[in-house]
Design a protein around this nucleic acid. Structure first.
Lengths: 146, 146
DNA sequence: CTTTCTGCAAACTCTTTGCACTCGT
DNA sequence: ACGAGTGCAAAGAGTTTGCAGAAAG
């Protein structure tokens, strides 16, 4: 499954690895173009897929709208802001024992990886909401936004 | 944000609540039609959105392809099979307060919910793969964490 | 030289939306 | 009766794919 090392593949991997935000495919395309101005979006998608299949990057699925890509391979988790939609890397320390998945193993599952995803408000949005919260005004956190 | 109780809304909620698999919007539409034959897909989407906003169901985002809906509101987690793509409810017991979201709170995050998603092979696919693995046959060397 | 990969554009899938009409309240 | 909700169909967003030509091995 190794395939050829084309400059497009190399560039896509470099971009994802260098990115500290969690870029969408379209965003990766934009960045790759700074080096290889005429790469096509289709090629970016193909290479992202290939890298994901080879486990050289992670795919972070987001509700509704498309996926995000994450070059960080070490174990870490994600925080998704309800309001602004940004994805942040967070460390949710867990015990190394993986005692939790033991009963799954017994049930016949083969657990390859696990992700913790947290939902809520990021510091910025949290503060903004606090500022808007006025006595008498009722607030409730509904995700919307586009 | 309550809105009107239309028969479409009621039917969509009933279907999602009754479902034990994790149906896609299209699948929900198919099922709702058994009761209300001429509901439109658009309406199903609108009602699924509304129910999600009111937190009367959960949205389970899947990589690449569309979202799945889950009527089970109690805390539980999901297992995604790498091969067949099915979503299964699993119980990953955790200690109530012990998760270290405390440092996130300190950092200014407001954590509303958290999900654990496990990836790997479901019992069926696990067995199928075992059967195919022959001595001398190449191994697909993707062993990663647990 | 062969085979895989690319660019392009069209096709596809999933989801959202504008509009006129319907039906809860 | 008023306006939120609906059906329909068309538009949007995101992703995949067929094909002729380019380029990695």
């Amino acid at each position: 499954m190794t395939g050829r090392r084309t400059r497009q593949l190399t560039a896509v991997e470099a971009v994802v690895r260098a990115a500290h935000d969690h870029p969408s495919a379209e965003e990766v395309h934009r960045r790759v173009r700074q080096t290889l101005p005429q790469v096509s979006l289709g090629t970016v998608y193909r290479n992202l897929q290939k890298l994901a299949a080879d486990r050289r990057l992670r795919v972070v699925p987001i509700a509704g709208r498309g996926a995000r890509y994450d070059g960080m391979l070490e174990t870490h988790d994600h925080f998704l802001c309800d309001t602004c939609g940004t994805v942040a890397d967070v460390a949710v320390p867990r015990r190394p024992g993986t005692r939790n998945t033991r009963n799954l193993h017994r049930a016949g599952y083969l657990v390859r990886a696990q992700t913790v995803t947290l939902y809520g408000l990021c510091p910025e949005c949290c503060q903004r909401q606090e500022t808007m919260a006025r006595p008498g005004g009722r607030r409730d956190g509904h995700e919307r936004e586009a």
